[in-house]
Design a protein around this nucleic acid. Sequence first.
DNA 1: AATATTTACGCAAGCGTTTGCGCTCTCCAT
DNA 2: ATGGAGAGCGCAAACGCTTGCGTAAATATT
Lengths: 343, 343
Amino acid sequence: MSTLREIADRVGVSVATVSRALNDKPGVGADTRRRILDAAQAVEYFPNLAARSLATSRTQSVLFIIHRRQFLAGEDPFYPYIMQGLEEALTSEGYAVMPVTLSASQLEGSLASIPAIRQRRPAAIVLAGPDIPSPFLVAASASGLPTILVDNATRETSIPAVLPGNEEGCKRATMHLIEAHHQSDIALLRGPSDWVSSEERTDGYLAAVQAAGLEPLIMTADDTTIETGQETTRQVLEARPETTAIVAINDAMAIGALRAARKMGRDVPKNLAITGFDDIAWAAYSDPPLTTVRVPTIEMGRLAGRLLIDRMAGSLTEISRTRVDTRLIIRESCGCHQEESSE
Amino acid sequence: MSTLREIADRVGVSVATVSRALNDKPGVGADTRRRILDAAQAVEYFPNLAARSLATSRTQSVLFIIHRRQFLAGEDPFYPYIMQGLEEALTSEGYAVMPVTLSASQLEGSLASIPAIRQRRPAAIVLAGPDIPSPFLVAASASGLPTILVDNATRETSIPAVLPGNEEGCKRATMHLIEAHHQSDIALLRGPSDWVSSEERTDGYLAAVQAAGLEPLIMTADDTTIETGQETTRQVLEARPETTAIVAINDAMAIGALRAARKMGRDVPKNLAITGFDDIAWAAYSDPPLTTVRVPTIEMGRLAGRLLIDRMAGSLTEISRTRVDTRLIIRESCGCHQEESSE
DNA sequence: AATATTTACGCAAGCGTTTGCGCTCTCCAT
DNA sequence: ATGGAGAGCGCAAACGCTTGCGTAAATATT
């Protein structure tokens, strides 16, 4: 493991000069700089980040915080994709991501009580997922560290956040149903109102339905699982049997709707059209394959990473919410076999 | 952010003594130690890990390496669960996990060319997943860092590895089919032979089938996706229509088998029994719900973490392969609705 | 030609720990 | 009383890097 000393000795300069040369700082002659870079190459120099952190008192790692519940639920976890994108964006700039999954009680407590944050002094914090309580988000942001939210947002303060184009996406899906499905009754299956994406998707549904002059029917569930999707669909079909289309707030609920429809003797898509949201891995394999709105999760992570890098570099872009584009993926659950379906 | 200095000043001793007291090292009087611990508590001291790393020249983070392909395939990724368990085990001992996903070309190259390993000098390496090439595993192990494999293993050298009880698990599932399904023809859908778990599960299948005096039928696919499961099942049912049961090497192939069976007019489980392996999140929601062998992925991660901690602590346990117990989860795809089914 | 400015570099302190070594003091065996 | 052992503690160096400051030389300014 070579050090600055070695390079300095080789070239015949001081370590200070080598440090400056390697970090693209002024105060080094062009020729000297070249020789230093060559020597660094020759000895395969990599900076010791622990030493650098100690000297600069800032690290090159960002905390990636999620709620442990995401795991226990056994659902299709989306944050690995977020993390993947994040890692892609960050490693290229020399940053590492360190995942920390917190329990509900830890998320109630104070930010400072999390050892990782005290001991490792991360350069930034990423908080992913809708189930991190708002006070915690605010506390993280107030800690002074660059903070970014993914698939979550706060109303009061304006913490930077990366979100899918929820409203347009859901509006798009609903409109697709309206166009194809002859102006029939379209119900919405939605989740808790403290989940930002749920709110926004509902807005999209409402915009589309009202533009078409239809009567909205909104069913709110406590969570957005297959089970609740199934149960709320049952309720919808019993309360309003004339319903011919269902917009589900996410794919899990949509798959639940599929199951409920089958159990109640409805043929999807013939008697009932269904759309989901997210395009999780299994959406393409449901029966029938699910028409849904694809959320580019990896891209969201990448974006979060880039925004963070910009902020750490000092550019004071106070953009509050950044959107990533969604895309309607037409499969079979909506009843229109188009050639240009998936992909 | 308090330092050793502060505590030392408060108590009236040297930093050296504080350091020794806080690290449970000898050379500190009982009374002094108490006062130091109290003071540390009072100022909410947390060691600066960068400084410690610099002084000890070893870090408190472990690299978690996976193959990027795992993501692109869009399959149900299993390693988030591994990582979850790993994190649980490691954080309690003050270690952090840093995930690094490598591309195929990086996995062909040398270990040293990975910046993370040169710059962060991890305390250990975890390599997860069957698709990391053997030479890379060997190189990692040869690097001198404590290394552990999860869901992979090498034949030549004996790198410590954590694996599911593949053979027993698959034997168990196959025997269940044999017992319930009156001694009929049972085919196996397996994956590539360089995937250790595939090999071992095949052994389990063979053991069960041969013990029952049946003729084995093994179909090998290039990968273990829904698509290949579907395709190989089609082949099996065409080549040997009398087949009444299929053991799939993993749940994805099993779900593919389900689809193929439906397309070919077979009723599962009436005309064809199917079992999977892994118990991924969606196994419970397939139609019919999949009977499968549960692999405790989170537990595997936990175990890997604990083994690593032991090795870093110096205990020279040269256990080569550690097994975690699997468990047969009986649902409906095998045709025996037992009361004591899942959970 | 004399002065002011800039450029290129070295010195050395400092970041917060750990740890080998040496010192003092107490205690016990001689 | 004297010696040695051991416990308890402090000193100071070391880990590898960054950075403010000082200085000499080179260049620009009048």
